[in-house]
Structures are given as C-alpha cells and as structure tokens.
Design a protein around this nucleic acid. Structure first.
Length: 583
RNA sequence: GUGCCUGUAGCUCAACCGGAUAGAGCUUCUGACUUCGGAUCAGAAGGUUGGGGGUUCGAAUCCCUCCAGGCACGCCA
C-alpha cells in the first residue's frame, strides 16, 4: 500500500520527466491547511539552479501533472510552490485500504537490518533512578518501532556489573553488612554499604587501597569475592526486573560488562598489534592525530597498572555485536555526557574496519521543579521504583474521583496503564535533546498533550461500540480479552462533513509518520501525530453523530471510529503505552 | 582554555534535509450541553525565535560573533 505522499511524488516525477526537468526538492505535507494537503518546492529549487523564474517552471510542471482521481489539479502559489488538494473520493478509498490492513497502511522498510539496541544499562549495587527513565523508555520505543518496520531487533541491557565500585561493595559486604537489613530490603542494604565505604574511601587512602585489593582478588577469580559479587548481582537484578515489569520492558540479551571481561586482554593486544593503539606513559592509549576533532583527546584502553576500563569493554562489546551477533547497526541510547566517549569508540571501530552503522542516540536530562537535576529532598537520586509506584497512586486517585463505581481490580489495572503511560509519554512527547521539567500535574492532566488525554480518546471510542450493542461490535486488534478480531468494515465510506474528511486524512498519515520517526530517532513526531489525531477525532465526535445517524453514514462513521481507535492503540503501543477500555 | 548541547508566547513545549502569515497545550477571556463519557468542542488574547552581523527568492533552522545555562575534555563508569 502506498501513501498519498508516495503516490503524489511519483506523479510529480512523471510530470517532471514530461517537462524535461530533473527531479529536485521534495514533496511534503502542506505546512498549513490553506495550502492544501501536500506541497512541493521543486520549482523553487530548479529555478535557482537554472536561473529561471520559479513561477514559470511551476506552471510548466503543473501543465504536465496527471492528477487522475487522486487530487484536484495542482495550483501554483506564493514564490512558486505547487499545492495539492486530495479528492474526498481518493481519501475515502485510501482510508478503506487502511481499514482493511492489519498494519494500518505502514509499509515495512525496504532494506531491513539486524539492529542491536543498547539501552537502560543500570548499575549493580545502585537502584535504578530517574536518570534511567529516558534511556529505558526511548530505547524500548525505538525497539518497538524498528521491529514493527520489519527490522530484526536485539535489545541488549549492558548492565554495569563489573567496575571499580565492586572493590568497595565487597569490602563493605565483608565489614559493614547488616544481615537483617539485607533480608528486609536487599538493595537498600547494598546501597548503604557501598555509600559508606565510598565515603570513607574518598578521604582515607589506606581504606581505598583495601578496597582495591578486594577488586584485584575479584578480578583474579577469588572464590569468596566471586560469590559475594554473584549475590549482589542477583539481588540487584531482582530490583531491575520489578521495574521492567512495571514498565513492560523486556530484553533479548543482558550482556553486562562482566560478560566481556575475559576478552579484554586480547582486545588490547589486537589494537596494539594493528598499530591503532600505542604505549604512552605506561598505559595503552589510542591517539586520533589525523582527526581534528579528537586530535587532543586520546583514549586509554589499559591503565598503567594493567587494569582495563570501560573503554576497553566498549570496544570488546562492538566486536561481539558485530562478529557474533552479526549486527548491521548498533544504537546506543545513552545520555549526552558520553558523546566524546562514543566518538572515540566509534572511531576505533572504524579503524578496525567495522562497517556497522553505529549511532549514539543522546538525550537531555530530567529536571525537578527547581530546574536543577531531579533529586529527592535529601539530595539523592529518586529511585525509579518509587517514582513509578507514585505515578500509579496518583492515577488511581483521579480514577476514584471520576469513576468510583469501577471494581477494585479494574481500578488497579487502569491506574497502572494511566500512571506508567503518563510517565512514558511525558518523556517521549518531547524532543529528546532538550531537558525537561518533571511535573506530575502536567503529565497526568486530562487536557493537553498527555497520555491520559489520548487514552481517553480511545476510551470514548470503545464506549461508542459498547453502546452500539450489536453483533458487529468492533474489537481491538490485540490485547483485549474476548476480542475475536472480527471487525465491521463499512462497504463504503461516506466522507461529506469537513470533520470526517479531516479525520480520514489524518488516519492515512499514520503510515507516513511511523517510518519518519527513525530518521532522527524522534519519538515526539509520533506523539504529536497521535495528539493531533485525538484532536481531529474529538472535532469529528462533536460535529458528527455516529449512532444516531442513518445508514450508510452510520456504518461509515463507525468505521472511522474503529480505525481511529486502532491507530491510537497501535501508535501508543509503539511508544510502549497501553490503553484501558474504561477509565 | 577547547569542544558539544540547549535558549522560541506569562508557563511547558512543537515546527520533518532552508519554505509561504512561527504552531499547540496550560493559564486568561467569550461562546456551545434534552451528552454516542463536557475527561469535550468552537473562538479570542498572547512573539524582535537570547543579542548583533552574514549567506539567498526565502532563516527559528545554515555560517560568524557575543550573552546565558548545562555537559565533557589521559589512567571513574
């Protein structure tokens, strides 16, 4: 199935060929409804290239344009733009196609890749905190979209389970551990001993040395230390799993840093041998002398004391992902502070001859109401688990106010969908590079560009079908108990009211929007689309009675509702957000 | 010091690879309910896109410069 954009672009290139003009510029959705549905700047670009008047060229192109039944004859406007207005008949036909399509018109990517997505990456012996939200939520949504577009996605959790911090954790475990506290709240106790040890280590060199010795023993394979380490990892993983369950995030692989431990010596040997790295002041260092940007930014991959650091691990990780996992691309969803680090690592991979498409997908920070990095009152990181549970609690409170008659189970289920959805959507609806201010009130608001608003649009649609009360009640595509997959498809769509035509056009755009998200990993494009779709639906809902209408308008409108619900459900699902049936 | 990111309405944010008169939401104000969930809709008000130059048919977007905030820059991860 082709989108209108593709259909029109083809017709445009035909017209250009007829007019003996080269292809240039682009055909895009109109920037403003005044200019129709699509526009092209091709005449402006050609005019510049050839030193001719854009308006004259535009007229020539328009004269050759075969609109068929798709759109009205295009018109030249402004400095030389060509504007296209879709015909309602074509919109109705296309919407019918989308309605019959399980994929809602979204085509699979032409060339599909195997993509490893590295996201989340919490650290053992530290609870997940707000700082992990963006990586986890962005990474999961990107994985869902890439998969939907036909790519083979491997979600990998690169857990921080093998660093210097373990010297301290093990020392603390041996000397400071409170067994009862460990039973009550394992992770909290591990965090406590780590923090206390860390504080003492920073001020006391002897103490620091003792911790280092524990680390050396661990890395040498000392049985006692390995056992302690294993237990810490297992206890931390329990905390992570709890959060992942709440978030509905899963991984295909959880290859933490320790997974690569054994390959590190050979990695260093290899890059030394190939001349990529050299020895400098006792350390093994990679210089990037021929790269102006990195010329004065060397990277250490083995410390003077023979120890490895995370740069070594990251090089080993690329080896594994490219050679063993056969990745065509690796996406790192990791915060902006590590930009330089990844530039260096990617440059090493390039020198080693790896062809994989390596991307560092960066994002901004989450700020508190005071515009500073979000912290608790005592200055600690906010544990993610607490935050998510509070989201559900707050959602629950709203449900109690609006819909107290729902059953306990239903309330709990809905509160989770709304609370978690709100947190995720607050993140995904924003341009990923900007910092954003975390606000419960804004993300849980029932008005505006929020998850609850979108979920409510879906709920209203479901309500219409409950009221329709007939055999041919639409059922969502997936995830709803009792859904048979049977759906009513009107034999024809009657698009007469502006609100109907508008909504149908909007529904056809879903197929254009979804692939676009991956161009620059902008999830907010999809969020904005869904918000606009919900707006268009509400306008339609006000202007066009559904159940009270006579046939064939009634079936037609029911189908529009059905499709809107499915697009909302699918779109939110691609963002990792669930929809309730009532709320 | 060098580099990267950010700066858009009172507030929170959009604007696809340079497009036409910079758009939403919140807030404020004005309208619309015998409701298919008003948890809504229609409308109004709100701008020197941090400042200043430049490039061109055309700049929030590209270049230069300055200002403000954040981050990173050889043995942490």
């Amino acid at each position: 199935m082709e989108t209108f954009q593709v259909v029109l672009a083809k017709k445009l290139s035909d017209a250009l060929a007829q007019a003996r003009l080269p292809i240039a510029g682009e055909l895009t959705p109109a920037t403003d409804p005044r200019f129709g549905d699509y526009q092209t700047n091709v005449a402006l670009i050609l005019g510049k290239q050839r030193g001719e008047k854009p308006q004259v060229l535009a007229e020539q192109i328009v004269a050759q344009f075969n609109a068929g039944d798709v759109c009205e004859p295009p018109v030249v406007a402004g400095a030389g733009f060509i504007n296209f207005v879709l015909r309602p008949g074509a919109v109705a036909e296309k919407t019918m196609e989308v309605l019959r399509d399980e994929r809602l018109g979204v085509a699979k990517a032409k060339s599909t890749q195997r993509i490893v997505i590295d996201f989340g990456s919490p650290n053992v012996a530290k609870p997940m905190h707000v700082g992990h939200i963006r990586s986890t939520v962005l990474g999961d949504a990107l994985a869902r979209i890439a998969q939907f577009l036909g790519h083979e996605v491997i979600r990998d959790n690169h857990i921080g389970d093998w660093g210097t911090q373990f010297g301290m954790v093990i020392y603390g475990w041996k000397n400071l551990l409170d067994r009862q506290a460990l039973q009550r709240n394992p992770l909290a106790e591990i965090v406590r001993i780590y923090k206390e040890t860390n504080e003492r280590a920073t001020s006391d060199p002897q103490f620091r040395e003792a911790c280092r010795q524990e680390l050396v023993k661990l890395q040498a394979g000392d049985k006692e230390n390995i056992d302690i380490w294993n237990e810490c990892v297992a206890l931390s993983m329990q905390d992570f799993e709890h959060v992942y369950k709440l978030l509905d995030v899963h991984y295909d692989l959880q290859c933490g840093e320790s997974f690569y431990h054994d390959c590190l010596p050979s990695v260093v040997e290899r890059v030394l041998k190939s001349g990529i790295a050299e020895i400098s002041e006792g350390a093994v260092v990679v210089f990037f002398r021929d790269n102006p940007e990195l010329a004065d930014k060397p990277l250490i991959i083995r410390k003077r004391d023979g120890g490895f650091n995370y740069a070594t691990t990251d090089v080993a990780t690329i080896d594994y992902r490219v050679n063993d996992l056969k990745a065509d691309a690796i996406w790192y969803v990791v915060g902006a502070p590590q930009t330089l680090h990844f530039k260096q690592i990617f440059e090493i991979a390039r020198r080693e001859g790896y062809k994989a498409d390596l991307r560092h997908i960066i994002f901004g920070s989450i700020l508190g109401e005071d515009r500073k990095l979000m912290k608790t009152r005592s200055g600690d990181n906010v544990p993610l688990r607490d935050l998510l549970e509070e989201a559900c609690k707050r959602a629950r409170k709203i449900i109690e106010e609006k819909n107290p008659q729902l059953s306990e189970d239903e309330k709990a289920d809905i509160a989770k969908k709304i609370g978690i959805g709100a947190v995720k959507y607050a993140d995904l609806s924003q341009y990923r590079l900007t910092d954003y201010i975390f606000s419960w009130e804004k993300m849980l608001a029932l008005h505006g560009n929020t998850a609850p608003y979108l979920q409510n649009a879906y709920v209203r649609i479901r309500s219409i079908f409950r009221n329709a009360g007939e055999a041919a009640v639409a059922t969502p595509l997936w995830g709803v108990e009792g859904g048979t997959g049977h759906r009513p498809v009107a034999t024809l769509l009657v698009l007469k009211e502006p609100a109907e035509i508008n909504l149908a056009k909007r529904l056809c755009q879903f197929a254009e929007i979804v692939p676009q998200v991956l161009n620059d990993f902008r999830l907010n494009i999809l969020s904005n689309y869904l918000f606009e779709l919900a707006n268009s639906f509400h306008t339609f809902y006000e202007a066009c009675p559904v159940l009270k209408s006579d046939e064939p308008v009634r079936s037609s409108r029911l189908s529009l509702c059905d499709l809107t619900g499915r697009v909302l459900q699918r779109g939110l699902d691609l963002l990792g957000i669930k929809v309730p049936e009532r709320m």
